[in-house]
Amino acid sequence: MKTVFQIIAISFVLLAAGCGPETSYIDTMHDSGKAVMALDYRDFDQAASEMVQSMLASGAVKKADGSRYVMATGRIVNDTMQRIDTDQLMAKVEQELLNSGQVVMSSAVGSKTDQMIYDTRDLKDSDVGDEFNQDTVAAKGQLIAPELSVSGKIFQRNIRYDKGHQQVEYYFQLQVTNLTNGLRFWQNETLIGKRGSNKSVAW
């Protein structure tokens, strides 16, 4: 009798375990999923696409002599109520700018600095410097200073729409500045607005 109860109990546990919603992959190419109040990957894709197209269409990053501008990523402020890694936007923008053939991004300065650039230079004067062939250590004066900087801001406004609904507006702003003379070459703003239930949480 005890064995029968045990078998029934195990059967119930197994049945209950199989009742939960299935995990499935998102079809990121043709995602027709419902909109969410918070920012999701579709919003970043759209914002990045619009930003890149606007920048390239403006001709602001096309050098007259046909060579490439050196661009550094400046500060991208997240002024939303969400924990966003601004790289969700900038990685796409930088990738497309690099692939456009008109811009080369700098890892020497800015918010995307690669610390390894400086760590390897420190090898000259470090205790373990003798361990390295000094000819293979980067010489002084090799780094290229950026000519342009891209910086921006993502911010959010929550508005009470009516008794049961709220409106959330997300603003993506980017600007490109010429670091030689401080002049702003390009800027753009993309607005993504959502309206939904007050019960939805936008952070």
Binding site: Q46, Q53, K92
Partner: peptide, 21 residues
């Protein structure tokens, strides 16, 4: 990364236009 679904809205009996680069 720019080849993503973009939203467009056209009012009734109206012209619309958009640009892609």
């Amino acid at each position: 990364k720019t080849s993503v679904w973009q939203r467009m809205s056209a009012m009734g009996k109206s012209q619309f236009s958009f640009k892609v680069v």
